[in-house]
Design a protein around this nucleic acid. Structure first.
Length: 501
RNA sequence: GGGCCGCUAGCUCAACUGGCAGAGCAUCGGACUUUUAAUCCGCAGGUUCAGGGUUCGAGUCCCUGGCGGCCCA
């Protein structure tokens, strides 16, 4: 008797017991239900490409092929059984006739269960109805499935189970597979786009002694041997700019970053950020690069630059709107604000608009808050929102025409931030002052404020050339292209509370 | 953190105002050599998320907790 594996959830106990018994039966017959290998020579998609248009309904070829995959459907019809086999490329029908395989093998085929992995060998044919099929001559069970698949028509829709057991979601739901194919194609396209422009892909540390490059709460950890506290990175920015100091002129990293914040449809604890830096570029160059890159990714991942998302029709083909933040606030909130205005005046604007604020906030932070509460969600875009206040942009260069602002943009699409970019601040003295201003905020209790990174300032003292940089939430880009509004739909294994057993 | 909604068979879903917990698919048994969500006949399958309460009687009402979804902060 087979030892029963531990059953996590007690689901489908009866069926599981039956299938475990089949394992014993197979082994008793000298058949290994988990054989070491099967050599296949064809993929489902290749067979359709080669034969769909070249053979007629009812015809049979001499081509003997070997395919393998998961058995998704079985249609038993007396002495003839049809099966639907899916491999990594697509599906193909199996045609299993008792007259061809013999009584014993036919009986054995009929003990297979939905979900089993099987390998078959047979001739390519088409049924009378014109369905391309493999007329099976030999077959082997490659791996026994002990648990039943979800409903063959409705699939799996319970979101909790879909996220916790993503492997089942991906087996059962074509739409889930489609979303992740878009994700993989998007990442591939972005890499190819940047490499074609002379960017090199680099890897920088995940464990940071000083968390930096973004305003966020980090995860803390501890290095035992060195007895030092470390933080999981919240952004790769400061390391990537060190590489521009070092003389690499165009670098990018597709970086997993970690933020110790609440979970929502827009936030996952760990997510993927693209960051890129280019010497001799400014934020105008970054706008051009960003719009071209996103349009290119869209074409490669979904074949079009027109997307429907969260009730909006979005056109991603360049050029995109370029607007200043102050201008947009004037348009949406009806107020004329500027960081040169006294704090009291800006607080009054907040009061009038019903925007709450903290006493520690300066003019720049007040303006950013007004923008975020009244304007951002209403921008359909894609729009480059330009020229953020200096106070809230500690890593961006002062604006060439107005030193109270910075040369920074955020890309807003469908009311949500997708990317953030600057002409990078490369004046080490100014950078130190900005870090110190952040440190004061941290002392006042702002857990998201930037710390002082002395080594980064030292790197700037060696000279960072004029540089443009951009960071983009890859998960959010994929959401846009896939037409989904929850970040959990684009992350293979999203964070959930631990399963209770 | 707050509000609203959900959790019923392996899966997808029903169950009126509190009154015998059901269907389809999957499974199991049977028929069937051109089906393709095959079809037809039959059987079986339940800690109604957990615990407590109200009631003659709770899937349903109340309380606490768990997990999830949506919205807000």
């Amino acid at each position: 008797m087979t030892d029963t594996p531990r059953d996590l959830d007690g689901g489908a106990a009866e069926e599981r017991t039956l299938r475990l018994a089949k394992l014993d039966e197979l082994r008793a017959q000298g058949i290994d239900p988990y054989p070491v290998r099967f050599d296949r020579d064809s993929l489902a998609r290749e067979l359709h490409a080669q034969y769909d248009d070249t053979i007629e309904a009812g015809a049979e070829t001499d081509a003997v092929v070997r395919v393998a995959g998961r058995l998704l459907l079985i249609r038993r019809q007396g002495k003839l059984t049809f099966g639907t086999l899916r491999d990594g490329s697509g599906t193909v029908q199996l045609f299993v006739s008792q007259g061809v395989v013999g009584e014993d093998a036919f009986e054995r085929f009929n003990t297979l269960d939905l979900g089993d992995w099987v390998g078959v060998e047979g001739r390519v044919m088409k049924t009378r109805k014109g369905e391309l099929s493999i007329k099976v001559e030999q077959f082997a069970l490659l791996a026994k499935a002990l648990r039943p698949l979800p409903d063959k028509w409705h699939g799996l829709s319970d979101v909790d189970t879909r996220y916790r057991q993503r492997y089942v979601d991906l087996i059962a739901n074509d739409d889930a597979r489609r979303v992740f194919e878009i994700r993989f194609a998007t990442v591939r396209a972005v890499r190819a786009f940047l490499e074609a422009r002379g960017y090199i892909e680099v890897e920088t540390p995940v464990l940071h002694p000083i968390p930096g490059g973004a305003a966020a709460r980090p995860f803390e950890t501890h290095h035992l041997a060195l007895d030092v506290d470390l933080y999981l990175r919240i952004a790769p920015e400061l390391y990537l700019k060190r590489l521009i100091v070092a003389g690499f002129e165009r670098v990018f990293e597709i970086a997993r970053v970690f933020r110790n914040e609440g979970l929502s449809t827009r936030h996952n604890t760990e997510f993927t950020m693209l960051e890129l830096y280019e010497a001799y570029a400014d934020y105008h160059d970054m706008m051009a690069l960003t719009e071209e890159m996103v349009a290119d990714a869209a074409r490669h991942a979904i074949g079009t630059t027109s997307v429907e998302w969260d009730g909006h029709h979005l056109e991603l083909a360049p050029p995109w709107q370029r607007r200043t933040l102050l201008d947009l606030v004037k348009e949406h909130a009806g107020v004329d604000v500027h960081p040169s205005q006294p704090v009291e005046q800006l607080r009054k604007v907040c009061d009038d608009l019903g925007v709450p604020y903290e006493p520690t906030w300066g003019p720049g932070k007040l303006i950013l808050e007004i923008y975020e509460k009244t304007t951002e969600a209403n921008i359909v875009g894609p729009t480059f929102v330009c020229d953020y206040p200096r106070e809230v942009s500690p890593l961006a260069r002062p604006h060439r025409d107005d030193p109270t602002l910075t040369e920074r943009f955020e890309l807003i699409v469908g009311g949500r931030e997708i990317a953030n970019a600057f002409s990078e601040l490369n004046d080490p003295v100014d950078q130190l002052r900005r870090f110190e201003a952040q440190a004061r905020l941290k002392q006042l209790g702002d857990v998201e404020a930037h710390g002082v990174d002395d080594d980064y300032v030292r790197a700037l003292e060696y000279g960072l050339p004029p540089t443009g940089g951009m960071g983009m939430g890859m998960d959010r880009l994929v959401m846009l292209l896939a037409g989904v509004t929850s970040i959990r739909e684009v992350i293979l294994f999203p964070h959930l509370r631990p399963e209770v057993t």
